[in-house]
């Protein structure tokens, strides 16, 4: 049986900043439960001696010379902004803390 509960889905939704409706939480709890049951089998073969692969092609050292390139104009930067003021993006009040 899966460990996916409505509380967990609610927590995950808050971590991922999606204001899920109660209906969505209910249906996702079921669906994710099934999905997780079917994908949990990865741990069967993922033994301690197997290294993890994060990049399919093992390359290293893609480095860039420290040379200034072309920048966007302020107008381009703000071209898709939902709201702007004084050359800056506007967001509504922040209650949380800076990290």
């Amino acid at each position: 049986m899966s460990e996916i509960t409505p509380e967990l889905v609610t927590h995950l939704a808050s971590l991922s900043r999606i204001d899920l409706s109660p209906d969505e939480i209910a249906s996702l709890t079921t669906e994710l439960g099934q999905i997780v049951d079917s994908i949990a089998k990865v741990s069967e073969v993922a033994t301690a001696d197997v290294p993890a692969t994060s990049h399919p092609i093992p390359l290293t050292n893609a480095l860039r010379a420290d040379v200034v390139g072309e920048t966007l104009t302020q107008e381009q930067v703000l071209q898709n902004a939902p709201e702007q003021q004084d050359g800056k993006f506007v967001v509504t009040a922040i209650l949380g803390e800076e990290q």
């Binding site: 860039r64 420290d66 390139g69 920048t71 966007l72 930067v77 050359g87 993006f89």
Partner: peptide
């Protein structure tokens, strides 16, 4: 105090006009 940013070629400069030291990467 590099000339450019960590992951883009935008100038690493203090005191510029807002939102001008910016490439698409920085945004």
């Amino acid at each position: 105090g590099t000339k450019t940013k960590m992951f883009s070629s935008a100038p690493n400069e203090f005191g510029s006009e807002p939102n001008t030291n910016i490439t698409p990467v920085d945004l």
